[in-house]
Nucleic acid binder design. Structure first.
Lengths: 342, 342
DNA sequence: CATTGGCACTCACGAACCAAGAGTGCTAAC
DNA sequence: GTTAGCACTCTTGGTTCGTGAGTGCCAATG
């Protein structure tokens, strides 16, 4: 594949990304002041089509890139978009969000990206996989309620509000906490044997164990899948490829229903950006959409994901660099909070 | 307004809600086997139009209800839909969701409603307004991290993961916890004076107070607005009135952007269902949409909201009863968890 | 042999037009 | 007060047709 073909392909993809219209030989020559004639260009375009990088929506229309064309484009042709000083400043500024729960932070980051890129955005909490219990804490909170706080290794904190007929004594609470922590610290699930042991160890008040351990079990189960937050759905609708409501609905439906088990998420390269173009997506529902994902480290090896979803015709270059920057910033924010401001 | 007109109006609204098409005199007579002729019906329809309950999209089309028509319909005409045994069972079944954090529960409930009603759904956490601090708890969680847990009266629990260069001693932590609780328990905000007092009381280790109190302040601020969760957005697109992508986008944009300050939410009747039809919505962006909201009690006077958004042509009767039932169930679930299963 | 101008051909798109169908208002008769 | 009849209106869907952007092929050229 010679140099000229590459330049032409790049020009076509760039053009199509901008205008969303099949690009023809004449208009391309005009706009990109190339030094060849439309006829020559047509030859080359026919060749590129032959090779599978371009296609025609119908005879006698311009060419549009195939997924394979986009692939070559993102891998080799596109020039890396660099964030301007201004853009970086804007990110940093907005990023100074008040961090609270991890989940909140992540969903908020998704919203931020949606706002900045004007694309539909997915953000996912870490896939904790099996996560060890670090600590359980109980404390009375109201005349007749107990708050259970569960901390897992890696930063996940869950709590539950437990209403009771009567509040147990301080002593009982201490004993409960102690026995639960002794038995389950470092565990990754609740076994029948451990429950027995815990009941025995607790003695009086052990009837309270039931709801607490049930909650603990839910927490363990909950960490098995990542939680996925969606935002900026409306931006999908502003893309011309989703002018057809039915298509838009299908995509949106898929995104919001498969939220839980989004299988698109395996990200191998630890820190890189992953781009999935059209049919490269595992899900057939997304076979005419593209997904760009970036991961950000949260703590010891676990990482969250943030990315955008849109039509295959998307501004890969700009989005990739935006996502990289934001993910990096997010990772830094999460790992060394104390040194937050420069 | 005589009885017959009311019956006719009801029939028209029912019909239009089902079919989404302007209803004409002939088809109405056929389908609702009325005992009058189309011509008479036309007279009545003209009268109803005169009164402002009906309108024509264009001359020589059938009639559709005006917002005012819908209003009369929901206030006086529609028969209350009663949930079937099956439907109730389905609700209860799905409702047996694992309760964790309050926010999660609420957003999950929203998703549930979206799935059941096939409408776009909003769910809002309680508008706590000024909420008193009940308790702050700190505990070490990792070699170099501290988890802050803040409990407010009314059931809101917030936590934050605080990374530090070095973990303070157990003693210091106890002292910090004690002084914070002493000074701020029952408070609704952080005053400069209190901060001073707290620092003095803590003594050694008081440099840790800064990030903790900052978080506390964020929590106080955070409770000023309700948090709003959106789900089932894609259902909006399946309504024929949103076949126009532009309109759908505008509505969706409004819903997801105004999430924070949704001013549509003041609900006066404590336990009832509130229905806002078209222009009755404060927001002009929703002037051709309807909103049905139900509130559910969370604890002492505070309540959350759950509701659906759709075109003015919505199945008010069914939705209202569904929402009522779900909200009631939710409230019961939240207030007496222990007696969960019958 | 790659490049280019010329030419005939194709196809989506929008405008204009037309027929069918559903619905209306009005009027005169019951 | 109710109804049948009638003329009229307006949307909807299908067809036709011209236009324009684009193509492939070919012959001529450096």
């Amino acid at each position: 594949m010679d140099m000229r073909k590459r330049r032409i392909l790049k020009a076509i993809v760039d053009e199509y990304i901008q205008n969303a219209e099949p690009v023809g030989s004449k208009s391309l020559v005009d706009r990109h002041n190339m030094d060849i004639s439309p006829a020559t260009l047509r030859h080359e375009m026919a060749a590129l089509e032959e090779m599978g990088y371009l296609e025609q929506p119908h005879t006698s229309a311009g060419r549009i890139p195939t997924p394979r064309g986009y692939r070559l484009y993102v891998d080799e042709l596109m020039q890396r978009h660099r964030l301007s000083q201004q853009e970086m400043l804007a990110v940093n500024d907005t990023m100074r969000l008040r961090i609270q729960e991890l989940d909140k932070l992540i969903s908020e980051a998704g919203r931020l990206v949606a706002g900045m890129t004007r694309y539909a955005t997915v953000a996912a909490s870490p896939h904790v996989g099996v996560s060890r219990l670090q600590k359980v804490e109980l404390f009375p909170a109201e005349p007749s309620a107990l708050v259970i706080v569960v901390v897992l290794e890696g930063g996940v904190v869950k709590n539950k509000w437990l209403r009771l007929a009567a509040l147990p004594s301080a002593q009982t609470i201490t004993r409960l906490t102690a026995s639960i922590n002794t038995v389950f610290s470092g565990q990754t699930a609740i076994s029948f044997y451990d429950v027995e042991r815990c009941i025995a160890m607790t003695g009086e008040g052990s009837e309270l164990l039931h709801p607490i351990l049930e909650f603990l079990s839910d927490v363990f189960k909950g960490t098995e899948h990542r939680e996925v937050f969606l935002s900026g759905e409306s931006h999908l609708l502003s893309q011309p490829e989703y002018r057809d409501v039915l298509k838009a609905r299908r995509t949106l439906e898929y995104l919001s229903e498969q939220r839980h088990s989004l299988s698109l998420l395996p990200l191998d390269k630890p820190d890189g950006v992953k781009i999935m173009i059209g049919p490269e997506n595992a899900a057939t529902e997304l076979s005419d959409a593209s997904v760009i994902l970036a991961s950000f480290p949260i703590s010891d090896g676990q990482s969250g994901l943030i990315g955008v979803v849109g039509p295959t015709r998307m501004d890969y270059s700009k989005l990739a660099s935006h996502l990289t920057y934001i993910a990096a910033r997010l990772g830094r924010l999460l790992q060394h909070e104390e040194e937050e401001s420069p």
